[in-house]
Simulated assay, not measured.
Amino acid sequence: MSGWFLLGAPWDCSGTGRGEAAAPSALRVAGLAELVDVDLGDAATHISTEDRDPVTGVRALGDTVAAARALASSLAAGLRDHPGLRPLVVGGDCTLLLGAFAHLRAAVGEVGLWYVDGHPDFADGSSSDTGETADLDLAVLTGDGPPDLVGLGGTVPMVAARHVALIGHRTADLDPESAAELARVPGDVFAVDAPAVLRDPAGAGRAAAAWGEGLGLSMWLHIDLDVLDQAVLPAVTYPQAGGPDFDQLAAALAPLAVSDRLLGVSVADFRPDLDGDGGHAARLVNLLDSVLKG
Rank of each mutant, 00 (worst) to 15 (best):
S14A: 14
F101V: 07
L97S: 07
T95F: 11
V89R: 04
A77L: 12
A22M: 09
G78F: 03
V90T: 03
D12H: 00
H103F: 15
G57S: 09
G125S: 08
D39Y: 05
G15N: 11
A72C: 11
C94H: 15
R59G: 06
A68I: 05
R18S: 14
L97R: 01
V90Y: 00
A102K: 06
G112S: 12
A107Y: 03
H46W: 15
C13M: 14
S48C: 12
A60M: 07
S74G: 15
G125M: 05
A76K: 13
P120N: 10
E34S: 14
V116A: 05
V36Y: 02
R59S: 04
D37T: 09
H46I: 15
S48L: 13
P83M: 09
R69T: 11
T45P: 08
D63A: 12
G91K: 04
G109I: 10
Y115G: 08
V116E: 04
D117R: 06
A76T: 13
S14D: 09
V55R: 13
A60V: 01
R52I: 11
A33V: 08
T45S: 04
A102T: 02
V108N: 04
P83I: 04
S48M: 09
G118W: 00
D53V: 12
A107H: 08
A67P: 06
D42C: 03
